[in-house]
């Protein structure tokens, strides 16, 4: 195999650049600040999530893990992710437009599980639906922010700039999924960041990490080797409120028409 001058120079440059980047990254790791290592290429990722309702057992591990991982206020009305239980009584299951009146509860976001409060009758229908920010590609919350404090990142995550947020709450009203809240400690908005501090380091989100049944799976739509492509191909998926054209990237398998 012969290597001409042009090829040699190209290879040598690539080698030098790559070892340079790795060396730079290692310097940060050695200093105990791996999060600052510049080895994450933002242009090569497009994050999404696959949620299999048929696998969710409503254990609430995801809610607990999210609260701990992201330092979400402890009170039972601040959540970055939560689990809802839908219950449709037997008389409604087969009635026309049964989906209009489901009973929905989410005690403490499902963090401590769900008490068995419904009658054990045959014929009723109930299931769990985990919810989180849908990381819309065309987010209503981003459109209404007057100061550019919330934005769709180039890798497909809707993030908040806490230094820029003025706490005006427009985005809280604009989100059709109810995924935002005002952090009482800072008076700025807070929401699911898809564990941006984890996924940019090669880890999965905290909720996906602890989900015992694999009902939640983080996926990178720009990585052809990611299993999410196969999951989306082999399942009949739907997003929440598709009629709102938000470009949601949280795909649900087994989504019932009653889920709002």
């Amino acid at each position: 195999m012969s290597v001409d001058r042009r090829q040699f120079l190209a290879d040598a440059t690539k080698f030098l650049l790559l070892t340079g980047a790795a060396g730079q990254a290692w310097a940060f790791v050695a200093e105990g600040r791996p999060q600052d290592a510049p080895d994450y290429d933002i242009a090569r990722h497009w994050w999404a999530m696959f949620i299999d309702i048929e696998k969710c057992i409503g254990c609430g591990r995801c809610v607990e893990a999210c609260k701990i991982e992201n330092d979400v206020p402890d009170e039972p009305f601040y959540f970055r992710t939560w689990v809802e239980r839908y219950y449709i009584p037997a008389r409604d299951v087969t009635s026309p437009r049964a989906e209009d009146h489901p009973k929905v509860d989410s005690p403490d976001g499902g963090r401590h599980g769900f008490p068995d409060i419904y009658p054990k009758e045959d014929g009723s229908k109930s299931f769990f639906v985990p919810k989180l920010c849908n990381h819309c590609a065309h987010s209503p919350c981003v459109q209404v922010c007057p100061v550019g404090a919330t934005f769709e990142s180039p890798d497909g995550v809707v993030l908040v700039d806490k230094d820029y947020c003025i706490g005006c709450r427009y985005c809280v009203q604009a989100c059709p999924y109810g995924c935002r809240f005002i952090d009482p400690r800072t008076n700025t908005v807070d929401k699911c960041s898809l564990c941006y501090h984890r996924i940019t380091k090669g880890l999965t989100t905290a909720c996906c990490e602890v989900c015992p049944t694999g009902a939640r799976q983080l996926g990178d739509l720009r990585n052809p080797a990611d299993p999410i492509h196969e999951l989306l191909r082999t399942h009949k998926v739907q997003v929440l409120k598709p009629n709102m054209a938000t470009g949601s990237k949280v795909y649900y398998n087994g989504l019932d028409a009653s889920v709002r």
Binding site: Q35, D36, Y40, I42, A65, I68, E69, N70, D71, G148, A149, T150, F151, S153, L159, V160, D161, K162, D163, Y164, S193, Y196, H197, R198, T200, K201, L203, A206, E209, V210
Partner: peptide
């Protein structure tokens, strides 16, 4: 329409799990 540094601010949170 955002501050590029906000990406790093979001990355800086410590990993707990």
């Amino acid at each position: 329409h955002f501050r590029t540094g906000a990406l790093d601010d979001n990355r800086r949170r410590p990993v707990v799990h």
